[in-house]
Computed example of a mutant assay.
Amino acid sequence: MAAPITLHLEFGGGAELLFEGVKDHQVTLPSQSQPWDMKQLLVWIRANMLKERPELFVQGDTVRPGILVLINDADWELMGELTYELQDRDTVVFISTLHGG
Rank of each mutant, 00 (worst) to 15 (best):
T62L: 06
L70S: 04
G21A: 10
E81G: 08
S33Q: 04
L9H: 13
L17N: 11
I5R: 01
T97D: 05
W76K: 06
G14I: 13
S96A: 12
T62Y: 10
I45L: 06
L56I: 07
Q32E: 03
T62K: 05
P65M: 04
Q59H: 03
W76V: 02
L9S: 11
P65L: 03
S96D: 10
M38S: 06
L68M: 08
A15R: 05
M49V: 04
W36I: 08
N48C: 02
R89K: 14
K23S: 15
A15L: 12
D73W: 09
T91H: 12
R64D: 00
W44H: 01
V92D: 09
D75W: 06
H8C: 15
T83V: 13
T62S: 07
L86Y: 05
I67L: 00
R89P: 06
E16M: 13
F19E: 12
G14K: 13
E16T: 15
A47N: 07
I71V: 03
G14P: 08
D90V: 11
T83G: 13
E81D: 14
D73A: 11
I95R: 02
P35G: 05
Q26P: 14
E77N: 08
V27Y: 01
Q59K: 05
I71Y: 00
L86R: 04
I45V: 08
E20G: 14
G80V: 15
T97V: 07
G100D: 14
W36S: 04
Y84L: 09
L50R: 10
V93M: 10
G21H: 14
G21D: 13
Q32D: 02
W36V: 07
H8S: 13
L17G: 07
F19H: 12
S31L: 01
T83K: 14
E85V: 07
G21V: 14
K23E: 15
V58W: 03
G12H: 12
N72V: 02
H8E: 15
T97W: 05
P65H: 04
E10F: 09
E55W: 01
D73T: 10
V27T: 03
T91V: 11
T62N: 09
L86T: 06
A15T: 10
Y84P: 00
E77H: 09
T6K: 15
E10R: 10
P65A: 04
S96Y: 06
L9W: 15
E10S: 11
P35Q: 09
S33D: 06
G60H: 07
L68N: 08
V92F: 09
